[in-house]
Design a protein around this nucleic acid. Structure first.
Length: 923
RNA sequence: GGAGAAAUGGUGGAAUGGUAGACACGGGGGACUUAAAAUCCCCUGGCCCUUAUCGGCUGUGUGGGUUCGAGUCCCACUUUCUCUACCA
């Protein structure tokens, strides 16, 4: 048989499509297995070889599980809303839907060529009204629920209203934006508008005045995970802080559950740790400091209650409500000027400058333990959004407080024995306390740990404050001033937001004449004609962010065409949750938090059966580019090979990766590449070839190092691409794409075809020899275990060894070929299918039963084994633990089996592995 | 500043605490061929000894430790990568 990959692959891809081989249906007689890939955003650039890495791994696993008898759900779709399509629309005037549809078509054709076993009948697109109907529905449910802290779950807002009517605000413990206090009578006396304002404080999807990340260049707000180091993740534009009225999701209410439920997930430790840090639980104390000559008490949060005797000043965030309350008339001018200055600085500028700034309010607080008066300052190093927006400053033991104290010449009191605070603060939480004695509390001599506990107990007993757990996780800002996203099913009556009727869903995105904001600064939807309810009330102009559509898509795949529920009870009850989720670690603090939150909310509502959406998660590593360089001798058009460049003064130039093969430059192609290289001269090495240099860089067009999977498929075939991507190295590790070794796996496939061609098909039922059986059973064991461990690179190696071993045995056994074909099916499904049918197999090999290995066949046979083991014999000897190598050697040589082997030969060497194996080398 | 991961030949990488370097690339040599490609066979961590064989020594970033035995476990350090950050 000839290995013609184009013919074989297109034929079997058509067969799978025509026979709906990978279509999955609910089947209670079989155990389910749900394998999911993070769905792609269809960008204009198409797929490069890095994208399919995770898809190939999950496809191998899906096929493997299918062969093991599981009913596998393995769907694919598109995260179709996003900024790039909208930016492109602004530039070209093309509707984002058009470019998105085109990009999706391109992605689909690229994916199809790789031979994935996706169930395309379940495809979803987040921009499809049939899909985003359920995104809007979830928002409405969140609007209609609050988080009850006693029940520790979301409850309907109507219950909250009943409880307000019965007992006022204090009758309910609920997650809220601000602590409110009112009686039942006051509640009953409120107007509808007032009540709605109160309820907004409790809703899980709520509108709030919050400090947001405003990106002027993009004209929209961004969530915390969409901002990194003061610039937008997409585009790298500066981001500033602004107080705006925005839709938010009360993700913070779920922080404790998001944290504790991490324990039961099979995720990598590093990913769990990233989420733990992002959720950021910190245990501390909330304390009140009375303000001198005033009734006001300043509330602060600290994790270092032990340092209370070292507080030499207090600091407020510029946005803190205390600033107005505490600024004295004499300081009013200075404070006002400072606030104006801070407001103009963007987050980025604040971080770059790192300059310590601040202003004195004129007020003094009183340390409740010492009675000492301490000045209250305002500074932008304190964040309004964390804790209470006010801190007690302990310059001796906090580096930020220290910098501030040095800048404004405030006192520094060391509290830990031996800490030298003349140059810098001592931030470590260790040591013995000093200088920490007051009239009622003495911490001197205690360790820091003991002091923290003692102080906490003391302030609780004295009513100075309370022990409090704070979370870093903030509520997610849920509006974007953008066009290409889900519209909110919300309209405004007298400025108050109301939900539309559920029957209005899906609320479809209207047409606009331009995708830019309106002249008066409204979002693009401000341009939509008739964007009102039938009664004429205006509809919300913002749209939802990217994570809205990607938060529950895994549920929709279970029941994608259900038009009366997000997911039906039967489908959810059967498929339950994602057993294996494969995708990039960059979603750790975005999508993977939001999805977990969204799922937990639906769980509270009883809409889904599982607390967590993704049971096991594997992060595939990034594939970087391998950029090739040529070296031009300065001021000439002569290029010198990498090995000779030391002798010349050269400039490295990036060269398109398609002109380079195994680091050898295609000189003719290079001359034709760009006009200014048309008359290039080459100084080659001794072998007459031009060798390129290389470096690992991000894969991108500008580096000329993008490798398109289509090209690999065209040249080597999808099976080679699949095997090679797995052979490249461990799945979770980042690695550069390097085509240098691809010939190796291609050669393996051709060898396997060759082995099959020599097989004796006439004697199909002939049993395998002892040696053949050993090779095959070893392979079954190795591949089965490797797939379970996601160690795909070593299983590819195992296939190569098996085929080489069978070739060496000159095997013509058809049964051996048949088993290897079944094992190979998840990795290289096309060629496996072809050979399976040539062998007379029925149906599709990709659903053929996975073989079991026979441990007996693999066992080492100490009589025969040395023949093929370079003169080494291997024996197992039993010895007590702790036996020295010398003693084991003596026991081994006395062993009857060993003695038989040694008889008449000279013992050259004894390699001892106590309790396990002894290798005896003889001459 | 914090957290996590990693460090093994010319290269990508293998090694349940038990013969380090599987497998592949690259390189060298040979067979076949008029020739090339393809294919097949042999060698390929370093150093030393030897005409060759046979052999010896050394070797998993650095320094310690645990162990009969460490690439693997523990401690410290160095370097690299990733994530994250005025979070009190």
């Amino acid at each position: 048989m000839e290995y013609n990959h184009k013919d074989i692959e297109s034929r079997w891809q058509r067969y799978w499509r025509d026979n709906e081989t990978y279509r999955s249906k609910i089947d209670p007689s079989k155990p389910k297995f749900y394998v999911l890939d993070m769905f792609p955003y269809p960008s204009g650039a198409g797929l490069h070889v890095g994208h399919p890495l995770g898809y190939i791994a999950s496809d191998i696993y899906s096929r493997f599980k299918r062969q093991q008898g599981f009913n596998v759900l393995h769907p694919m779709g598109y995260d179709a809303y996003g900024l790039p399509a909208e930016q492109y629309a602004i530039q070209t005037g093309q509707h984002p839907e058009k470019t998105t549809t085109e990009n999706i078509a391109r992605y689909r054709s690229q994916l199809d060529k790789i031979g994935f076993s996706f169930d395309w009948s379940r495809e979803i697109r987040t921009c499809d009204p049939e899909y985003y109907k359920w995104t809007q529905w979830a928002f409405m449910e969140m609007f209609n629920h609050y988080y009850d802290l006693e029940a520790d779950k979301a409850l309907p807002i109507s219950e909250l209203e009943e409880r307000f009517a019965a007992g006022g605000a204090d009758a309910v413990k609920a997650a809220c934006s601000r602590e409110l206090h009112f009686s039942a009578d006051e509640w009953k006396a409120m107007s509808e508008k007032e009540r709605r304002e109160v309820l907004m404080n409790y809703r899980i999807a709520y509108q709030g005045e919050t400090m947001v990340n405003w990106c002027p260049a993009l004209g929209t707000v961004l969530a915390n995970d969409e901002v990194s180091e003061g610039v937008s993740v997409r585009g790298g534009h500066p981001v500033e802080q602004r107080l705006m009225r925005q839709w938010c999701l009360r993700v913070s209410a779920y922080a404790p559950r998001l944290l504790s439920d991490l324990d039961e997930l099979e995720w990598s430790d590093s990913l769990k740790e990233t989420q733990r840090n992002w959720i950021g639980r910190s245990e501390g104390a909330e304390m009140r400091f009375p303000v001198k000559d005033s009734d006001i008490e300043l509330e602060i949060f600290t994790t270092r209650a032990d340092t209370i005797f070292g507080v030499t000043f207090m600091v407020l965030a510029p946005e803190s409500k205390y600033v107005d309350m505490l600024t004295t008339p004499e300081q009013a001018e200075a404070v006002k000027a400072y606030l104006a200055e801070v407001k103009h600085k963007t987050e980025r500028e604040r971080q770059i400058e790192k300059r310590v700034s601040g202003v004195f309010t004129g007020s003094y607080a009183v340390n409740p333990l010492t009675g000492k008066e301490i000045p209250v300052w305002v500074s932008d190093y304190v964040l309004a959004g964390y804790g209470t927006g006010a801190i007690m400053a302990v310059p001796a033991h906090d580096s930020r407080d220290y910098a501030f104290a040095r800048r404004f010449d405030l006192p520094v009191i060391p509290l830990i024995e031996g800490a030298d605070v003349s140059e810098e603060s001592f931030d470590a939480k260790e040591g013995i306390m000093i200088n920490s004695a007051g009239p009622e509390l003495n911490l001197n001599g205690l360790t820091v740990k003991e002091a923290i506990a003692t102080t906490k107990r003391f302030i609780e007993e004295k009513g100075l404050g309370k022990v409090k757990v704070n979370f870093r996780l903030r509520d997610a800002i849920f509006s974007r001033q953008r066009y290409w996203g889900e519209p909110f099913p919300v309209y405004y009556k007298e400025g108050i937001p109301y939900l539309m009727e559920e029957s209005a869903l899906p609320l479809e995105l209207p047409e606009v004449d331009s995708y830019l904001p309106t002249s008066d600064g409204q979002p693009p939807l401000g341009r939509a004609k008739g964007w009102t309810t039938p009664e004429g009330y205006p509809i919300e102009l913002c749209t939802m962010p990217g994570f809205a559509g990607s938060s529950a898509y895994y549920l929709r795949y279970m029941d994608p065409r259900n038009d009366h529920e997000l997911v039906g009870e039967e489908a959810d009850g059967y498929w339950q949750d994602v057993d294996l989720y494969v995708g990039g670690a960059e979603h750790a603090t975005g999508h993977l938090i939001y999805s977990r939150f969204w799922n937990k909310f639906l769980y509270d509502l009883g809409k889904v059966v599982k607390k967590e959406p993704f049971r096991k998660l594997v992060n595939q590593g990034m594939i970087q580019g391998r950029t090739s360089f040529v070296y031009r001798i300065k001021d000439t058009n002569t290029f010198v090979s990498h090995g000779l460049k030391g002798d010349y003064d050269t400039t490295p130039i990036r060269v398109d990766i398609s002109l380079v093969s195994n680091d050898i430059l295609d000189c003719e192609g290079f001359r034709n590449w760009r006009p200014d290289f048309a008359d290039a001269e080459f100084l080659t090495e001794a072998d007459g070839k031009y060798h390129c240099g290389w470096a690992v860089e991000k894969m991108s067009k500008s580096m000329f190092n993008v490798v398109n999977p289509d090209d690999i498929v065209e040249r080597y075939g999808a099976d080679t691409l699949r095997l090679y991507e797995m052979f490249l190295g461990p799945l979770e590790q980042s690695k550069p794409w390097d085509t240098n070794g691809i010939d190796g796996v291609n050669r393996f496939l051709r060898k396997f075809v060759g082995l099959f061609s020599r097989a004796d098909l006439a004697a199909k039922d002939a049993p395998m020899s002892r040696e053949e059986s050993k090779v095959v059973n070893k392979l079954i064991k190795k591949v089965t275990q490797d797939i379970e461990n996601f160690s795909f690179n070593t299983s590819v190696a195992a296939f190569m060894i098996a085929v080489n071993d069978l070739s060496a045995l000159k095997s013509t056994n058809a049964e051996a070929i048949r088993i290897i074909t079944v094992l190979l099916a998840p990795f290289a499904p096309h060629i496996a299918e072809e050979i399976w049918h040539e062998l007379g197999g029925e149906g599709s090999v990709t659903v053929a039963a996975w073989p079991e290995w026979d441990e007996e066949a693999i066992k080492d046979d100490s009589v025969k084994y040395p023949v093929s083991f370079n003169g080494k014999a291997r024996f197992v000897v039993e010895v007590p633990a702790g036996t020295s190598p010398k003693e084991v050697e003596a026991i081994a040589l006395a062993d009857p089996a060993a003695a038989k082997w040694i008889e008449g030969k000279e013992v050259k060497k004894v390699i001892v592995v106590p309790g396990k194996i002894v290798n005896i080398v003889v001459k």
